[in-house]
Write a protein that binds this DNA or RNA. Structure first.
Length: 471
RNA sequence: GGCCCGUUCGUCUAUCGGUUAGGACACCAGGUUUUCAACCUGGGAAGAGGGGUUCGACUCCCCUACGGGCUGCCA
């Protein structure tokens, strides 16, 4: 069932913390936001949540932008720095103070930590109730204070979530969160709300680790009289063992997938399908994904990464790709993987051979491996199995073939006639002479069609390789 | 501890009270073939457990188990 139409242009955002690489789960979150906005003619914004000055680095920001760019997720406008908006956040905090929606809390962190530890030890609730909530201003000491949200004490906060449904929180479970620290810097809880509202974000699509936060954040929206966005909390991605995805599962950074040579289109398709469905659709283009993607198609349970399926999807996208685009992406892969670039000659022969390679490969390393017949130069050194195929009888056949090939018209039909006749003349099936041909042309027993190889490398090279092998 | 979310084949999922519970990946068998891949045909494979509600529950409600998240002057 499709989502109900939204009355205004859709604005979504991806808001990563620049504290490391772009996590594969984060990439999927970004992808969902991108699909939702792009599929509805809306805007997709990027905000870097760099308010944690200790852990945020420009390198991490650069890595995130690189990852998104590789995945093909383009954002509108410049990425917003959350840290750069700290004065605006403080302004809102003071506005809340003025409205009586927040209060000055003079409790020190040490005090609070000690209180919480005691509460935990005694098995009491660890929710901190500041003694300053209703304090008389006359009693305010002359020290630093944090600004705390004056959360409603009774009743409940209801989060209407497009994925999780209606989620109710007893307000007694939510304490007065700090919105502005005693050093004057904003907390995340305040900053997200202010930024989302100022950026005009209409739909907040993010990991469900934020579901509880949504209730708190909603209190800020309410306190400021702002319209609450549409929430969509999506389940996290788990490792193949069903546990939370972590480094011990292997690749968790998006750039590792790029380095492994997965094509971006396949990656997008796989990630889109992970936790979202549109009937039985499995393999689709990004244009299709944009037109189909909706919040109601998102599942509520965490999905596990399955490399086999990733590979299968990638293989299908590789086969669907246009040769020129595929070659370009392959070259980008080589650069990203730190491998030597293709020479112009190699690029040319590779592009001409893609038609017979791309439907047999799932990743770029695999594609390159299968392209060895085209990339290699004489003399072709046969591997062990290929060497066995080049026995004396086979070499004799190869030798007898060369004069005919020299005079042949270089088309598949003509070659087929020559090779079939040669097989018949030797009382062999075609398969029996294909093996030594593969060995001579590629040095391997597993290759594309012998005709395709001959057509790609051309007459002179074919004859030369056969002569090499027959010698 | 408290609160919140989740649980359909091994995996990703369809199903939105009535289906022989469907598809895809993976796996197995056969076919095709010029090796491999691809492709074709067939096969095994699932509603966590227990209570309700209902003429009828995978679907709605409750409990339990298991998994996950939150519980910071981190984001």
């Amino acid at each position: 069932m499709a989502d109900a139409p939204f009355p205004r242009p859709v604005v979504t955002r991806f808001a990563p913390s620049p504290t490391g690489y772009l996590h594969i789960g984060g990439a999927r979150t970004a992808l969902f936001n991108w699909l939702y906005a792009r599929g509805r003619g809306g805007r997709f914004l990027l905000r870097i949540e760099d308010t944690d000055r200790e852990r945020s680095t420009p390198e991490a920001t650069a890595a995130i932008l690189r990852g998104l760019t590789w995945l093909g997720l383009d954002w509108d406008g410049e990425a917003v720095s959350q840290f750069g908006r700290r004065h605006r956040h403080a302004e809102v905090a003071h506005d809340m103070l003025a409205r009586g929606a927040a209060y000055r809390c003079y409790s020190s962190q040490d005090e609070i930590v000690a209180w919480r530890e005691a509460a935990r030890a005694e098995g009491r609730s660890t929710l901190f109730h500041s003694p300053w909530r209703d304090a008389d201003p006359a009693t305010w000491p002359d020290g630093p204070f944090a600004i705390r949200m004056k959360a409603p004490r009774g009743g409940e906060t209801i989060v209407e979530d497009a994925v999780q449904g209606t989620v109710r929180f007893d307000n007694g479970q939510l304490d007065d969160m700090v919105v502005l620290r005693s050093d004057g810097t904003p907390t995340y809880m305040l900053a997200v709300v202010v930024d989302d509202r100022d950026m005009g974000v209409t739909h907040v699509i993010r990991g469900d680790d934020h579901l509880n936060n949504a209730a708190r954040q909603q209190m800020v929206y309410d306190a400021m009289g702002w319209e609450v966005p549409v929430w969509a909390h999506i389940p996290l991605i788990h490792g193949p063992d069903g546990k939370k995805l972590s480094k011990r599962h292997g690749a968790v950074g998006l750039e590792e997938y790029q380095a492994m040579g997965y094509p971006a289109a396949g990656m997008r398709n796989y990630l889109t399908r992970l936790g979202w469905s549109h009937g039985d659709a499995e393999v689709f283009t990004s244009a299709q994904a944009m037109s189909w993607f909706d919040l109601s198609g998102i599942g509520r349970s965490p999905a596990r990464l399955d490399f086999r399926k990733l590979e299968n999807i990638c293989g299908q996208h590789m086969a669907m790709a246009e040769d020129a685009a595929l070659l370009q992406e392959l070259q980008a892969y080589l650069a990203a993987a730190g491998q030597p670039a293709l020479s112009p000659q190699q690029a040319d022969v590779l592009q001409r051979s893609l038609y017979c390679l791309k439907d047999r490969a799932k990743t770029f390393p695999e594609l390159i491996d299968k392209a060895r017949f085209a990339l290699a130069t004489r003399p072709i050194v046969p591997d062990e199995a290929a060497a066995r195929a080049l026995d004396s009888v086979s070499r004799g056949i190869l030798k007898s073939l060369t004069p005919q090939l020299q005079g042949a018209s270089w088309t598949k039909d003509a070659l087929e006639v020559i090779l079939s006749e040669a097989a018949a003349a030797n009382g062999l099936g075609f398969g029996k002479i294909a093996a030594p041909l593969r060995a001579a042309l590629a040095g391997r027993t597993v290759t594309p069609s012998v005709y395709d190889m001959m057509l790609v490398i051309g007459r002179d090279e074919t004859v030369a390789r056969l002569q090499d092998a027959a010698a």
